[in-house]
Amino acid sequence: MRDFKPEDVVGGYKEAVLDLYGGLRRVVFYTNIETPYPDGKLIVSTTDTNGIITHGNKAFVEMSGYTLDELIGSPHSILRHPDMPAVAFKDLWDTVSKGEHWQGIVKNLRKDGGYYWVKATVIPNIRQGKLVSYTSVRRKPSRTKVEECTVLYASLK
């Protein structure tokens, strides 16, 4: 996965080491700068069955801060924020690998170290009865839900 570069980060930052799905480790830099979710837009991305990004829409590029070329071929965990508890992603993978939809409020990490909150729905893409990929659709969450999850996720760390 692409390394985090201090020169990409905007503002004062902290450092964290993340243990990601598939045995990956990543050093990330993160700030307290929130990018508000744009009204009316959907962020859409597709991964293969191993969680590697194969497609992303314009809103995905805009909100993540990465170029499409940087996103395609990267694990979806490139967006993982250190404030997100590992148990949330375990629940995600356990759910979608059973062929079911997963939905949750997620804090995502931008390339510039900032963050954005989303209401994410991940669905398995079944073709001719076979799992071929996953699609993640993100939309604007309510502030109430974000505040609830901020407290909840801190307690699960």
Binding site: H101, I123, T135
Partner: peptide
């Protein structure tokens, strides 16, 4: 079409 259906499924929940 399958992609749009998946998207609609995601939005319906």
């Amino acid at each position: 079409m399958e992609f749009m259906i998946d998207l609609m499924d995601a939005l319906a929940v």
